Amino acid sequence: MKKIGFSGTLDPITNGHMWVIGEARSIADEVIVFLSQNASKEPRFSAEERRAIVLESCAERHWDNVQVVIVKSDYTARVARRHGVDYLIRGIRTTADFDYENLIQQTNVEVIGGAKTLFVMPPRDLGSVSSSFVKALEGPVGWNWTTKKFVPGPAYRAWILRWLHQEWQSLFGTTQTGNATRPNTSEWFARLTGAQSYGGATRHYHNLDHLVHGLTEIRAWAANTHQSPRDADLVRAAFWFHDAQYEHDATATVSNEEASAQLWLSSGLEPDAARAQEVATLIRVTDHLQGSTLAHRLKESMLGVDLAILGQDEEVYGHYARGIRAEYAHVPDEPYRQHRTRVLEHLRGKAAAGTLFTEPWFAEQYSEAAVVNMTRELALLGSE
């Protein structure tokens, strides 16, 4: 078969969609993805954004025989015929899917004279994956780690960048009076999420995932402990910048945390000098050397957010542990094992003693799981 088509809104494209496209590639020389632009829907991504995500997702798998056509105000099956496509391919997961798709197929062929439909059945692990399913995962603590399993990398990155941009705008989009845009907000967002900061290729843990996770932790903490919006925003601002500078430079004259605090102060994002200094202090408390000597009423909350990853479920903790090792890939195995063992034994001891999370909300949520997780990692390191 020369050409086959695949149609959908793809908002966002999922691993299930990618499987169907892969099946199409196995039976045709060329695959055309017909991307629906429906004025009655309010998609998360624009048609052009979705087109770029689909193409990038295919390019990531070296699928060079896939193109994307945006369909506006027309029947996809009819547009497909105009592009020389006689068959569309659809994935069906249930009998309900088949009944619906068969009705659409009959309409396509008998009413509008469009392309016919081939049906394929995805493997069991993709049987429940749909755009609606993955969109419904957004929100709770750890949602990003769960979502990551169901969408291709480019779709995931676009998704969390969109989420982060909404978070950023809610914090820095306007002045506190709400009647003026803060200076340079777009530039600073691009800088923090770009290649020189959390979006960097060598950021395997202190990256965009870490940023999303921490911000959702702050949401949960603020909601469950009835924090004032002012205090929650102080912690949010500090978390945005706390790992903005993260270098492995033994000759550096200041710590990464101090460099990040200085970067924050230079941003001008907070015109109130006293609040700006509060945020800088909260950034500095995440430095285990100078942080112990600093005081702030939100210090324990900030540390709880930063250390919350230690108390996540086994799968998420595994992401974290592998990410840390990747960030220190320049360190040989034995020195890394020795240093990591010392760190984990110290942190596990504090967790067991009830002093790792001194903010009650985080202590209740994560202390026990943190001990279990670190004990497991120590065993994998051969230290126990």
Rank of each mutant, 00 (worst) to 15 (best):
A273G: 07
D233Q: 10
L310A: 05
R236H: 03
W264K: 02
R219I: 04
L269A: 04
I309P: 08
K299P: 06
A237P: 00
H213R: 02
L208P: 05
S301G: 15
Y246V: 09
R297S: 12
A295K: 14
D209S: 09
G304S: 05
G199W: 10
A232V: 02
G200M: 01
T293V: 06
F239P: 01
T281E: 04
V254T: 13
H206T: 11
A195M: 01
T216C: 08
A273E: 12
I309H: 06
A232T: 11
Q245L: 01
S301H: 05
L294N: 05
V285G: 07
M302W: 03
E270A: 10
H213S: 09
D249E: 09
M302A: 15
T286G: 14
H242K: 02
L310W: 13
S255I: 12
L282E: 01
S266F: 07
R230L: 10
R284K: 15
E300G: 00
G200W: 02
I218T: 04
N224S: 11
R219K: 11
V254Q: 10
A237M: 06
A308N: 07
H288V: 15
L211A: 06
A220T: 03
G268R: 08
L265R: 12
W221M: 11
A276E: 00
E278I: 00
L208K: 08
A238T: 06
H248N: 06
